[in-house]
Nucleic acid binder design. Structure first.
Lengths: 194, 194, 194, 194
DNA sequence: AGATAAGCGAGACGGTACGTCACGTCTTGCA
DNA sequence: TGCAAGACGTGACGTACCGTCTCGCTTATCT
């Protein structure tokens, strides 16, 4: 079905061009670094002309965002076992894999972009951050109703505490971001230290 | 010791020029945003020539770093009361004030800069991050020896957990970064949630 | 022949920009002098951006060269009367007019440029000098075959003797460069002095 | 007259510095070319500070001029034999040696400098050009009084014709500048071609 | 012997230009 | 209508040289 006849006059958008752009973007970041990513280099690397880039994406950040969404499973589903710590851990492992995998540099690039541009940070939150927080929130609310978590818990705060350290290590790169780190973090948060 | 004679051959560096550069830098960030900060704009805004900027600072980031160090008391001292939570809170309040004060945008700008340049991120850690972590670590070690904290605590992890959420909110700007946030965070970390 | 389709893909070169550059170049030289001619000043004076200048001309000298070629009829034709002296005189008058006209300063500027750059001097010879020498040589060879000139004459040397004094006065500016000068020079060369 | 006691208070000028400057100047021109000659490079190459250069010389050209005068015998004396052609030839040989010797590039550099600066060209004429023309003029006047040359000869024109081709070949570099060239030139001028 | 004065190197400074890069926009012709 | 090719102004980059300006040290003459 050609759903509703979208009035397709003229030549249709070239899907191959889109793919070339997105893969060139990721290739540039991983091989030459964030600093070498420019619309100019994307255009050269993808053989797609600059005007065409501007026709389809409003900014370099949006290309990056779309490139990432194209290659990663964005929102992990939660297991709903009767063990909260275990479910959080599984989720955290996936997050570690995401941030330290081949596209970790691309994530860093996206946040760098967002820092200089408030509107784009809003896009990042909407697309990358919030969906992930939402599924976590759902699991935590379950935990409250099952008595695994105190009823008066500030969930937003708890979610911050769970995610922030991952981003912190991704950006600062001061120490390893791995499963051991995830384990320690989660156990510390759940059990408390004092 | 050879510090007595700093080898003052030649015309001395113009202190006024340095000040003009640093204050122009902060002024540009706060009034026109990170995106408008360039060596060109700093040069114009400070009436200091571009070659002079390059004579003294190797990059835009270093100017930013020096500008921040010039206007903020960097390493807060810890109170050493017998109440760990109270001391952490005092420290956190200062941190909140720092990040949400007039130079909050400058901090965001610095991290944006560091993200595209690994060497500069190393500088940020050395100058901005580590000193602050060090004083916190000292206080936490005291806490262990006084029995306020379990002896097997992973201190690096705990420090990450304490600082990361501040940076997280500074960058993502998804929710308020205030004293209430600090209070909740600290109490959650110390008491645990499960 | 593949000149029929000069491969006009993309936006065509802006002819108005080219003209603006060339006329700004001549204007700057005549009003503010050679010393004020820079790609920067040409850019400002023509409202053509510096990158565009570099796109089309490899150096300041080439702009000058093209500017001159654009406004002067380069190679004068020789009259072929039966009087060699008369034909040389007519040609010399044109040369005097060229060097003392509104673009005399531009010629001086071009030679100054060529002196610091051997490759560019080669360009000057190819474009400005040799064509003029060639037509003179043709006329002189005619003269030999018609018996107006000795058959063993060293033509290159004779041509040097005819042209060098013009350049000499253009550059040194020690005495007037006018028709009387041309008359005297030619008669002296043809008749000899001893 | 106070030249007996020039009232030399203070430290006298450092003669070694002057020599270092002049020899560095010639060294730079001959090894790295005219294009690399700058007050900056002279300062570096001579270990003489830039302010000192400005104290003693008003411009780059003046340094060049002084450097040349320091190393070359400027005005050749004329032989006064009874053979004009022979005397001119001897003089021309010396001129060839001068322009094609180790300082030929320096002469080219000086003329390049003079072309962008009318006042400096005046200095070149006064110091380099006119003295040489004067001795030639004296010899030619002798020739007139001795009947070797017609009495109505335009001497200025004749001197131009004698010197111009040398400069022409020095600058344009289109053909060799050697003794054969000098021979041919002089004989052509004296005997005429028609 | 000390004061005085100039010379000098070191080096900072504003200014101007260099040649290049990326940006975002714009024509043009082909598909 | 989509697209490449590619020209264009804008603005910034990092560097070079210019001419000037402090500084403090040195080297002389003068008192």
């Amino acid at each position: 079905m050609n759903e509703g006849k979208p009035s397709v006059r003229g030549r249709p958008r070239d899907a191959a061009a889109r793919d070339a752009v997105l893969s060139a973007t990721l290739r540039i970041i991983s091989t030459r670094g964030i600093g070498s990513l420019s619309l100019e280099s994307i255009s050269r690397g993808s053989k797609v002309s600059r005007p065409t880039l501007y026709r389809w994406w409003p900014s370099k950040g949006e290309i990056l965002l779309e490139a990432l969404l194209n290659v990663t499973e964005q929102v992990a589903r939660y297991g709903h076992s009767d063990n909260l710590a275990e479910d959080l851990r599984q989720h955290a492992y996936e997050y570690v894999a995401l941030l330290t995998g081949p596209y970790g540099d691309a994530y860093r690039a996206i946040f760098a972009e967002g820092m200089a541009n408030e509107e784009f940070m809003e896009r990042i939150r909407t697309i990358l951050i919030n969906p992930r927080r939402d599924v976590t929130k759902a699991r935590l609310q379950d935990a409250i109703s099952m008595g695994e978590l105190k009823a008066d818990t500030d969930l937003e705060m708890l979610i911050d505490a769970l995610y922030a350290p991952f981003l912190y290590r991704l950006l600062l790169q001061h120490q390893r971001l791995d499963r051991t780190f995830a384990d320690t973090l989660i156990s510390q948060i759940l059990k408390g230290k004092a």
